[in-house]
Lab assay of single mutants.
Amino acid sequence: KYKEAKESFQRFLENHEKMTSTTRYKKAEQMFGEMEVWNAISERDRLEIYEDVL
């Protein structure tokens, strides 16, 4: 289930129109921090996936 959450988060970042190569992690956290997809995984994993996607 956790792996699915990580994959969902990656797809979310890859497909969200507001995500560009210039979007900083903290800005994304402000935009999406309340969303379930954002909070479903640990911050360490979130940051790792974020850096992989951008």
Results as ranks from 00 to 15, higher is better:
residue 16 H to W: 01
residue 12 F to Q: 05
residue 48 E to N: 06
residue 47 L to S: 08
residue 23 T to I: 08
residue 49 I to N: 03
residue 26 K to R: 11
residue 7 E to G: 05
residue 31 M to K: 05
residue 5 A to Y: 08
residue 3 K to M: 04
residue 2 Y to F: 13
residue 49 I to W: 01
residue 21 S to Y: 09
residue 53 V to C: 14
residue 20 T to F: 08
residue 51 E to N: 13
residue 33 G to L: 00
residue 3 K to L: 05
residue 46 R to F: 02
residue 48 E to A: 11
residue 21 S to N: 14
residue 35 M to F: 12
residue 21 S to K: 13
residue 52 D to N: 15
residue 18 K to T: 09
residue 25 Y to A: 05
residue 19 M to K: 06
residue 11 R to M: 10
residue 9 F to Y: 07
residue 22 T to F: 08
residue 1 K to G: 02
residue 39 N to V: 00
residue 26 K to D: 15
residue 52 D to T: 15
residue 11 R to S: 14
residue 6 K to P: 02
residue 16 H to F: 02
residue 19 M to G: 05
residue 23 T to V: 10
residue 31 M to N: 01
residue 26 K to N: 08
residue 49 I to H: 02
residue 10 Q to H: 05
residue 30 Q to A: 10
residue 54 L to F: 09
residue 14 E to R: 11
residue 45 D to C: 01
residue 38 W to Q: 12
residue 4 E to L: 11
residue 35 M to P: 05
residue 39 N to P: 00
residue 35 M to K: 06
residue 16 H to P: 02
residue 18 K to E: 13
residue 30 Q to M: 09
residue 38 W to N: 11
residue 49 I to E: 06
residue 33 G to R: 06
residue 33 G to M: 06
residue 19 M to Y: 02
residue 26 K to G: 12
residue 48 E to P: 03
residue 42 S to I: 05
residue 50 Y to S: 08
residue 11 R to C: 07
residue 35 M to Y: 10
residue 42 S to T: 14
residue 10 Q to C: 07
residue 39 N to L: 06
residue 44 R to H: 14
residue 5 A to T: 07
residue 32 F to W: 12
residue 34 E to D: 14
residue 24 R to D: 15
residue 38 W to R: 13
residue 25 Y to K: 02
residue 19 M to D: 04
residue 44 R to A: 15
residue 15 N to S: 02
residue 38 W to K: 10
residue 17 E to K: 11
residue 42 S to A: 13
residue 33 G to D: 01
residue 16 H to Q: 12
residue 17 E to R: 11
residue 34 E to G: 13
residue 41 I to G: 06
residue 22 T to R: 10
residue 29 E to Q: 08
residue 46 R to H: 00
residue 10 Q to S: 08
residue 37 V to Q: 04
residue 28 A to L: 10
residue 36 E to N: 08
residue 30 Q to N: 01
residue 20 T to M: 06
residue 47 L to H: 10
residue 28 A to F: 04
residue 39 N to Q: 10
residue 48 E to V: 12
residue 42 S to W: 00
residue 29 E to S: 03
residue 13 L to T: 03
residue 25 Y to H: 00
residue 6 K to I: 06
residue 42 S to L: 09
residue 35 M to R: 09
residue 4 E to D: 08
residue 23 T to Q: 05
residue 37 V to F: 01
residue 10 Q to V: 11
residue 51 E to G: 12
residue 43 E to H: 01
residue 11 R to T: 11
residue 12 F to P: 07
residue 34 E to V: 01
residue 2 Y to T: 01
residue 2 Y to K: 09
residue 34 E to T: 13
residue 36 E to R: 09
residue 48 E to D: 10
residue 13 L to N: 06
residue 2 Y to A: 04
residue 2 Y to N: 12
residue 2 Y to E: 12
residue 40 A to T: 05
residue 20 T to Q: 10
residue 21 S to V: 11
residue 5 A to K: 13
residue 50 Y to K: 03
residue 32 F to M: 02
residue 31 M to S: 06
residue 41 I to M: 05
residue 34 E to I: 01
residue 34 E to F: 04
residue 24 R to W: 06
residue 3 K to N: 09
residue 22 T to Y: 13
residue 44 R to Y: 13
residue 38 W to S: 08
residue 50 Y to L: 06
residue 1 K to S: 04
residue 32 F to Q: 07
residue 31 M to W: 10
residue 30 Q to V: 12
residue 52 D to R: 15
residue 24 R to G: 15
residue 51 E to A: 10
residue 25 Y to G: 06
residue 10 Q to T: 01
residue 9 F to I: 01
residue 52 D to H: 15
residue 24 R to T: 15
residue 5 A to W: 02
residue 35 M to G: 06
residue 21 S to E: 12
residue 23 T to C: 01
residue 30 Q to P: 01
residue 26 K to M: 03
residue 8 S to Q: 14
residue 3 K to S: 04
residue 36 E to V: 10
residue 38 W to E: 08
residue 30 Q to R: 10
residue 24 R to F: 07
residue 49 I to C: 07
residue 13 L to E: 10
residue 49 I to D: 07
residue 41 I to K: 07
residue 44 R to G: 12
residue 33 G to K: 13
residue 14 E to Y: 02
residue 1 K to A: 00
residue 13 L to D: 10
residue 36 E to C: 04
residue 26 K to L: 09
residue 13 L to P: 04
residue 5 A to N: 13
residue 5 A to I: 02
residue 20 T to C: 12
residue 14 E to N: 02
residue 7 E to L: 13
residue 53 V to T: 10
residue 29 E to D: 02
residue 2 Y to M: 04
residue 48 E to Q: 15
residue 16 H to L: 01
residue 2 Y to S: 02
residue 19 M to T: 03
residue 16 H to V: 07
residue 9 F to E: 10
residue 2 Y to V: 05
residue 25 Y to M: 04
residue 36 E to F: 00
residue 30 Q to D: 11
residue 19 M to W: 05
residue 33 G to Y: 02
residue 38 W to Y: 07
residue 42 S to Q: 08
residue 10 Q to K: 15
residue 34 E to R: 12
residue 34 E to A: 11
residue 27 K to R: 12
residue 16 H to M: 06
residue 49 I to S: 07
residue 22 T to K: 12
residue 51 E to I: 02
residue 15 N to T: 09
residue 5 A to M: 08
residue 51 E to L: 05
residue 24 R to I: 12
residue 12 F to G: 08
residue 22 T to S: 11
residue 46 R to A: 05
residue 22 T to W: 10
residue 14 E to D: 05
residue 22 T to H: 11
residue 32 F to C: 07
residue 37 V to R: 00
residue 34 E to L: 02
residue 50 Y to C: 02
residue 50 Y to H: 05
residue 41 I to L: 12
residue 48 E to W: 08
residue 14 E to T: 15
residue 47 L to M: 14
residue 7 E to M: 12
residue 13 L to I: 08
residue 8 S to D: 14
residue 32 F to H: 02
residue 43 E to D: 10
residue 21 S to I: 02
residue 18 K to C: 13
residue 32 F to S: 06
residue 31 M to H: 03
residue 47 L to Q: 13
residue 49 I to Y: 01
residue 18 K to G: 11
residue 36 E to A: 12
residue 16 H to E: 13
residue 35 M to A: 09
residue 8 S to P: 01
residue 48 E to Y: 07
residue 23 T to R: 02
residue 18 K to R: 11
residue 25 Y to S: 05
residue 23 T to Y: 00
residue 28 A to E: 05
residue 44 R to S: 14
residue 51 E to P: 09
residue 44 R to F: 13
residue 53 V to R: 11
residue 43 E to N: 08
residue 44 R to L: 08
residue 32 F to N: 02
residue 26 K to A: 14
residue 42 S to G: 10
residue 33 G to W: 00
residue 34 E to Q: 14
residue 50 Y to T: 10
residue 20 T to Y: 05
residue 47 L to T: 12
residue 12 F to N: 09
residue 18 K to F: 10
residue 13 L to G: 05
residue 44 R to P: 14
residue 20 T to L: 14
residue 45 D to Y: 02
residue 9 F to T: 06
residue 25 Y to R: 02
residue 6 K to M: 12
residue 22 T to P: 08
residue 46 R to I: 02
residue 7 E to V: 13
residue 26 K to C: 15
residue 40 A to R: 11
residue 25 Y to D: 08
residue 44 R to K: 15
residue 49 I to R: 08
residue 28 A to K: 05
residue 5 A to C: 10
residue 51 E to T: 09
residue 1 K to T: 05
residue 6 K to A: 03
residue 24 R to E: 15
residue 44 R to M: 15
residue 3 K to A: 00
residue 2 Y to W: 01
residue 48 E to H: 07
residue 1 K to R: 07
residue 3 K to I: 05
residue 9 F to A: 07
residue 22 T to V: 11
residue 16 H to K: 03
residue 40 A to H: 02
residue 4 E to I: 03
residue 16 H to Y: 03
residue 16 H to G: 04
residue 29 E to P: 04
residue 47 L to R: 14
residue 4 E to T: 07
residue 48 E to G: 07
residue 51 E to M: 09
residue 51 E to Q: 15
residue 38 W to V: 07
residue 10 Q to L: 09
residue 18 K to W: 10
residue 14 E to H: 08
residue 41 I to H: 06
residue 39 N to R: 11
residue 9 F to M: 03
residue 6 K to Y: 03
residue 12 F to R: 08
residue 23 T to K: 05
residue 39 N to H: 07
residue 41 I to E: 07
residue 10 Q to W: 09
residue 47 L to Y: 13
residue 50 Y to E: 07
